[in-house]
Every structure is written in C-alpha cells, then in structure tokens.
Design a protein around this nucleic acid. Structure first.
Lengths: 175, 175
DNA sequence: AATCCAGATTGAATTTCATTCGGCAGTTTG
DNA sequence: CAAACTGCCGAATGAAATTCAATCTGGATT
C-alpha cells in the first residue's frame, strides 16, 4: 500500500501544471539568479521555503534547464559573433553535425525551415578561426554551401522568457 | 602623495588582465553557476576566498555580464523558436528597432553584415503571435522585407565561452 | 643591490543564506 | 462526510558566502 500511495503521489506531482507564481519566480531567476530565496519571496508574496520548494520542482521538471553565468565574449578573447547558415543535401547527416559540438566556438545549432537547413551561432577569436571553422563545415558530407553573417553590434540579448504580464491579477498575496 | 598612490593603485587594478585561472573559473561558472566557491576552488587549485575575490572582480569588470536561469521555452508556453532576418533600407532607424525590446518574445537583435541587416531571435507561443510580431516589424519605417526561419529542433545550445584548453600549462598551483 | 610597496593569497571568524522539520489550512477524493 | 493529500508557513539547523587580519611574492624605486 505504501508503495502504491508513493507512486500516485509522484505521478500527481509531475503532472502538476505551472501557475502564475511559478512564472513570476522564473522571471525573477531569468533576470538574476544570484538573488536569495528571501528576496524572491518578497517579490512573489510567498515564504522563502515555499519559493525554494517551487524552484526545486522547476529544476526537476526541466523548466529551469540550468543556471549559468553569462560571459562577455570580447573579454575572453572572442570578439567576433557570427551566424552561419548551412545548406545541406538531404538528411541523416546529423551525426557529423554533432561533431561540431566539439568546437567550443559553436554556441548553438538549430535545424530550421527554409532554403537553409541549419543555423549556427558561433563566437570566435579571429577571422582565421572563423575560416577554420567554415572549412570544417565544408568538410561535412552533404554540405552544399554556407552563408555567414558577421555581427556588427548586438542591440539586444536577454534570456527572459516567462511571460508575467498575462495573469498578474490571479496572484494571491497572503496576509 | 597619498592621492597619487591611490590613483595609481586604482588604475593598476582595473588595467589588470585576465589570466588562465580567471578563464577556468569562467568556464566552470558558465556551465553551472550554482556550485559553491569551495567546489570551484578544488577545480582551479585556489582557496575559496581567492575564487570569490576573482569572481567579484570578474563581475565588476563586466566579464560576467549576469548570472541567469535558463528557462525551457516550451514549458512556459512558448514552444516556437524562430530567426527573423530583416532587410532594411539605410540606417539611423535603430530607434524604432529598439522599440522591439518591449516585446518579451524578442530575445536577441543583432546588426549584421550581408544582404540582411538585422537578425532577430524570437520565441513565441503560436504562429499567430509570430504573425503579430512580423506585422510590427513591417510597420517599422525602412523595413524592406523579412525572412523567417522556424526552428524544427535545437541540436546544440550552450553558453560556455571561456577557452580553457589554450594555456593550461601556465596555471601555477600554490604550495 | 637592497629596501619598500602593492597586490594576491591564506586561514579563521562572522554573518547571511539554503535547507530541513513539524504543524496547519485548503482542496480533492473515496 | 470523512480522510488524505498537497502546499504553505514559521522556526531551527547546517552550510555557505563574505569579511578580516596576517603573510608571502613580485616588481619598482632609490
């Protein structure tokens, strides 16, 4: 019986949805993850242990994928940010694409619609490094061509994703 | 005399460069910023207060731009990730581009080279939301046209930037 | 060449914070 | 209607961040 209740409890917990308080917590953490649970609890109107419990759940469910430090690329010797569009023939070549993960210069790889099938976001130290990276891409079988867009300036860059403005009125403040 | 020494001290501190230990600390924090200074100190071969001192400096210098939680877009109701290329006529229209920052769906805006002048990374809840966003872009004066690339799957997504492999041998371990 | 000075590191001390525990209210289930 | 479960709060505990004084090292000045 004990095992049965535990399994039911677990499934009920994982099936639980996300409410406005969770989204507000995510919004706070997506802007500054260094603030204490006490500070967040004041913003969302909960106690610190309650916030901690929810954050733990959000981590377990994968809603919070990771907590990381954002590094200024220019200060670590990689001032060049570029987007590379890769034109590929057919599919099933993802194994070789995966090999690009070995290069720390590659920050993102997305499979997309459109005439170009792959979009890469790379950050390199020099034009030579970019050239070397492009040659590696060309070596991949099935790559028809590439288009590179050098970033001249970054106007906006943020990670905030939780939309808080939707249901603020549904938040219940205690006391 | 006293004032002179102080000014020299300040300038010397801010002009201080970044060594291999700083890069290793950045590498650790860019992968997981929740780990304690004690854990990082074991990785880099320093004491915990020394690591803390360096991290504080890295924050002040801007090398660590922020520490944020990475949110799973799909779990917060925004499953659609897309890149929008904006073709603009001339320049000086950045004021109106800045207005796009008001939309939480817009995560990044880069001014780039190539036939398209602007690359945007957006995360929206629905095709309708994407359509609404595109109509806002079209309303901006000087926008000639746009190209949208829907992300089918994200192969790689990371923030690690500090290159550690470069100068490991130059790291000096105390004692 | 020797002395002095600035910066960095260390280990200990302090304080803040994360984490756990018991108890209670609201809600759902049987 | 009762029982159980979920989620919250307040207090307590443990660990971690943060500060401090003292020491060491490297470099510049005299």
């Amino acid at each position: 019986m004990v095992e049965k209740t535990e399994s039911i409890r677990t499934s009920a917990r994982s099936a639980r949805g996300m409410d406005a308080l969770d989204r507000r917590i995510l919004g706070a953490l997506s802007q500054d993850a260094t603030q204490s649970y006490a500070a967040i609890s004041e913003q969302v109107g909960l106690s610190a242990p309650a916030v901690h419990e929810r954050v733990k759940r959000l981590r377990a469910s994968g809603a919070i994928k990771a907590t990381v430090a954002q590094i200024d690329g220019a200060q670590v010797g990689k001032p060049i940010l570029a987007f590379i569009h890769v034109d590929t023939i057919g599919w099933g070549k993802t194994r070789e694409i995966m090999a690009l993960e070995q290069f720390p210069e590659v920050e993102e790889i997305h499979s997309t619609t459109g005439d170009t099938c792959l979009i890469m976001k790379v950050r390199v130290a020099s034009p030579q490094a970019l050239e070397g990276l492009l040659s590696k891409v060309y070596d991949i079988e099935g790559v028809r061509g590439t288009s590179t867009y050098l970033t001249l300036s970054t106007v906006l860059e943020r990670t905030a994703q939780a939309d808080v403005t939707a249901d603020l009125e549904s938040v219940s403040y205690p006391r």
